[in-house]
Design a protein around this nucleic acid. Structure first.
Lengths: 356, 356
DNA sequence: TTGAAAGCGCTAACAA
DNA sequence: TTGTTAGCGCTTTCAA
């Protein structure tokens, strides 16, 4: 009964074939969905497989099929909760599509990161670049060797790599409208890192809309997308003689810092004494201690779009869109003074605001 | 000059060999550290490789070498910031050791998760189970097929799988001592999920030490390791007629919830009106808005131990230890009333407390 | 130091 | 429906 498998050496298709007294290809076919095998053969193979604890070697398969069913996901840092959320969702959805995630966490050393060379060694079927500081150089390199790339939450300098993002520009505009509608007068922007496309677009929308409404972004500080950076930046902002009454932070992660500096170091209650708005709507933004008003980047929808584009690429087709912007909403919570009108609730009871 | 590589088909060793006018094995050797190749051959191969943009196919290599240089990391959820931190550190350290992380995020459906079967398909060289709710059944299964497994922050029911954990029991004891030293009288424990070994050990240490000091754990609620669960549990705790004056939460993630419920829903200021202590010392625990007193599980050290054990396993040796407990410290911050003595500071200025 | 050749575990024609 | 056979890209003897 117990055909002991040699320890340390997983059973192979040949082992199974031998035991089942069929050819090795019969085994292969049994494990290939939609291949033609008789019920009897399949049964015998399956029985032998169970006995030997056989599982097809995906890596070996990749040699003949030319696809590894592995997708590389490159991220810069997991401090900002947005990225763990993205990673989790990505892993789930790719899993459903039969792909596994091979993780590449770089450290902002971006350009010359040697780890990324490894991407190619592992013959990932595709690469998802979910990182603000990852270069388009890498994207270009992958394109050259024929590895499909899609950029998540960034856009590269080159416009040939498809990218998925939230509605940065519109989000910035909506936040401007919201803050003006809330009666604010003195606007500040807490920027991320210099070159990032997300910061640029969000600020662009914000500043433009403010201008349309007869206002200006009076102050600007850089938080470099880090918590500590945002702490410092907020201090700069709030210790001014005539301090801003509204701060739009380029992402939630930095908004959390701003919130805490205002409340704890300056005794300013967010939503009453100063308004703070973020971008992303990460899970913890709704924690009661933050109650952060923010423009959402719906992770599920963004990931769905990413997968959609990815599938096109994997199928060898050209992407139907090079720039997919997933709509978000201004989620109304307590960290920014609320306008008297325009706030609605969806079926789930989530309060949001729409510019008229 | 430009020998265009066929699009969609990365160059192979044979392509390079042909171009360099050497044998394919010469190419292989050039890319095998410590193989014997003449300088001239190497140079020609390298030149051809660059020209063709060649990178050795790691997957193909794994066929002959019997190792994939891939380590599976299984996690349940990334909401609790501890796990993203662990993942990042793990990815870094494994990277240094030449391994890549293949991600398996399950959803607490633990036992019967089909995705985990895939682990074997990908012939991971080893598996790191960093998840409270993952079963030892899986560990056993892997052991059976010869895949080394190490459990991170859990211990399985079977004692054959090596595990790395923080100092759960000692941590629980230290927290008890600390709270008693701080003059507390009414103790509560906010548990995680029922079966988890971490909760059990932490509570065990806590309760035992309390008893030694003439106290008892008066209340106990389950937070199921989730934020929402902890919100509810804390409400139960705090709305009692004679409510606890000290709550030890089984991890930081739940302690965050407790903190906010106390402050916002009950108007109790943590550290003054009620003391709340966590476990893990996640990054956000030191955010000014939380200032959470907590017993640390040093991620870097825990990961280092994990890698150490893993390497032994990968080398085919027996692990030097089946249960590695990494020491932590009681990090003193503001969420729990401080005893009058015993608080010290390390070189980095971090305040901690040691039981006498 | 080199090349030829076998084999790693699998898929996919191709015949039977 | 089956088995045979030829690769997939690489490593690793084994001779030369």
């Amino acid at each position: 009964m117990t055909t002991k498998l040699p320890v340390g050496r997983p059973a192979t298709a040949s082992d199974v074939a031998k035991l089942a007294k069929v050819s090795q290809s019969a085994v292969s076919r049994t494990f290939t969905p939609g291949a033609s095998v008789s019920d009897t053969t399949r049964a015998r193979v399956l029985a032998a497989a169970v006995q030997l604890n056989y599982t097809p070697n995906h890596l070996a398969r990749s040699l003949s099929t030319q696809h590894s069913k592995i997708v590389g996901v490159a991220l810069t840092y997991l401090d900002n909760q947005f990225y763990p959320q993205v990673l989790q969702c990505l892993s789930d959805e790719l899993g459903k599509a039969g792909y596994r995630v091979l993780l590449f966490i770089t450290h902002g050393r971006s350009e010359a990161d040697p780890a990324l060379e490894e991407l190619l060694r592992y013959r990932v079927d595709a690469l998802i670049l979910a990182s603000t500081s990852l270069s388009s150089r890498l994207a270009a390199e992958c394109a050259r060797v024929g590895v499909p790339v899609v950029m998540f939450n960034t856009i590269g300098a080159d416009s040939t790599t498809p990218g998925i993002s939230g509605s940065n520009e519109l989000g910035g505009r909506t936040i401007a409208s919201y803050l003006v509608a809330g009666g604010h007068q003195r606007f500040a922007f807490l920027a991320g890192a210099g070159e990032s496309s997300t910061t640029r677009e969000r600020e662009h929308g914000f500043v433009n809309r403010l201008a349309e409404l007869g206002h200006a972004r009076l102050f600007r500080e850089k938080g470099y997308y880090t918590f500590e950076g945002a702490l410092a930046a907020t201090r700069c902002l709030l210790k001014r003689a005539k301090r801003p009454d509204a701060i739009f932070c380029a992402n939630d992660h930095m908004a959390m810092a701003a919130l805490q500096v205002a409340r704890i170091e300056f005794g300013l209650e967010p939503g009453r004494d100063v308004s703070i708005v973020g971008f992303d709507d990460v899970d913890i933004a709704r924690w009661p201690g933050f109650s952060l008003t923010t423009y959402s980047q719906p992770v599920t929808a963004m990931v769905a779009e990413t997968i959609r584009i990815l599938r096109q690429l994997l199928a060898g087709r050209a992407p139907t869109s090079l720039r997919t912007q997933v709509p978000g909403r201004l989620i109304v919570r307590g960290s920014a003074r609320q306008p008297t009108s325009g706030i609605r609730r969806d079926e789930a009871g989530i309060a949001f605001w729409e510019d008229v």
